[in-house]
Design a protein around this nucleic acid. Structure first.
Lengths: 107, 107
DNA sequence: TGCGGTGCCTACCTCCAGGTAAGAAACATT
DNA sequence: AATGTTTCTTACCTGGAGGTAGGCACCGCA
């Protein structure tokens, strides 16, 4: 008897990893925790992420329902991304990751 | 001014991801939370992981100081893996991932 | 008229996590 | 002998995450 399902369809860990387990998603969530930010702003905060991947990850997060995208039809265009309630529910993960990471940076 | 360093050497999130961000490590920690287990036992609990990767991940976790390996010089050989204190400190991450994952499996 | 900022897209490529397959050491059991 | 059990290793290969490079639309401004 398995109390812990392992397949993607039923395993919570797998599901969570699929949603935010990529290289940059957690850092994006972390940077958005204190309010909505523009695409360029995020790019500035995460200089090492490529333009392509940034847009792609943001799109994924929006599709997953963790972010909301606000597009303003101005010139030049302005776009802002914001955590949804679902996105906020991921913050404990960010917190525990940060805590754990700090612990191991010190050591 | 960046309050959040992003490079692997100083970013807590990155550090944490490097330690347990692979496909199976979190699931291994989860399965070891209730006590030490043998290699074959873990293999049985995680049928989809390949032998090679299982050993490799366990070796990584031991090298990272999250697991302890107990080898008994018996025939046939017996090996047990156990969470260290550092490993236990990763459990909040597992918990928050599970909580978040469950939330999104329901939806 | 050319340049800069902004958000986004496309083609292309590299690298490596992770899979498969096979086997080795060492004994116990049949 | 022959086969099984258990831990672990090696060689090989593939898919896909993520990087690079470049272009597009739109306008303001010098």
């Amino acid at each position: 008897m398995n109390t812990i399902p392992r397949d993607t369809a039923h395993c919570p860990v797998r599901k969570a990893m699929n949603l935010i387990g990529s290289k940059w998603k957690v850092l994006l969530l972390e940077n958005l925790r204190d309010g909505r930010k523009r695409d360029g702003e995020l790019k500035r905060l995460l200089p090492d992420i490529s333009e392509k991947v940034l847009i792609q990850e943001l799109k994924d997060l929006v599709a997953s329902g963790l972010l909301t995208k606000h597009a303003y039809p101005e010139i030049p265009p302005r776009v802002e991304y914001e955590l949804t309630d679902s996105g906020q529910q991921a913050l404990p993960i960010v917190d525990s990751l940060v805590a754990f990471g700090k612990q191991h940076l010190a050591a």
